[in-house]
Nucleic acid binder design. Structure first.
Lengths: 128, 128
DNA sequence: TGTTGCCTTGACGTCGGCGTCAAGGACTAC
DNA sequence: GTAGTCCTTGACGCCGACGTCAAGGCAACA
């Protein structure tokens, strides 16, 4: 299969695939006329990448999963390096969620304070 | 006070202040030799901007707060436009936190699955 | 007078993950 | 042959919030 078909089947673009190749993430075979050629396994690798991207992994973080699949393992996360990425990501997510919740609390408090105070503004008593 | 002192007192850089000015967020008076001149109120505006930036507001979102202060109100959030930004930010945060928690759950599940499965890898029984 | 240290404007660089355009080659259908 | 659709490489654009460098002006002090 050529690049256009692979892109379509994975729901992405040819530009994206060339970008992945430029990053060494998804190299392609070439046929006689220089066209990139892919097989079903490449589609599997690509879908792995896309799934992780949807989770918020950046490209470099997907590399262990891709290499794991390319090494013949049934799942991208069948290898220790992938699990390490999972764990690091969980820690990052926990930290981020915690920070966001803290910020949310602060803003919520400020909003309540500002709403509770007499307006002091040129506000004409709209429904608060 | 000149730009360097203001930057130092707000814990930021002169580049940042010039950037804010270029965005129309923190315009400066000029003295005879062309140097930017700021007063204590500018420091207050700047601290308002920085606080909101720390909360993850982007620059444009801080504008209503700055204009509120410049209009003479005691707090940046004493005006309806600022409260509207607060509310929008709360909604965004709730949505984002929800998405991150969903992703966290999915990754956690995948990690548990991958750890529960027999390794299938060239792993030498490290502590999992 | 010279040196230091602040200031000025202008402009290019950064980061990630591509989008978008340009110029041209390859292949198919009619 | 030629129109249309795919493919190729190369290169610039984008976004936000600045960092960093260059070339030069202004002020104070020895």
């Amino acid at each position: 299969m050529r690049i256009g078909e692979l892109a379509a089947r994975a729901g992405t673009t040819t530009r994206t695939l060339r970008y992945y190749e430029s990053r060494g993430l998804l190299p392609a075979r070439r046929n006689d006329n220089g066209y990139r050629t892919y097989d079903e396994n490449d589609l599997k690798l690509l879908r792995q990448i896309r799934t992780l991207q949807d989770f918020g992994f950046d490209l470099e973080e997907t590399r262990p999963f891709v290499e794991c699949l390319r090494a013949g393992h049934p799942e991208g996360d069948s290898c220790p390096a992938s699990l390490a990425v999972y764990r690091r990501k969980l820690d990052e997510l926990d930290a981020l969620i915690g920070e966001l919740q803290a910020v949310r609390a602060k803003i919520g408090l400020r909003l309540a304070m500002a709403e509770g105070e007499p307006p002091l503004c040129e506000l004409g008593g709209q429904e608060l």
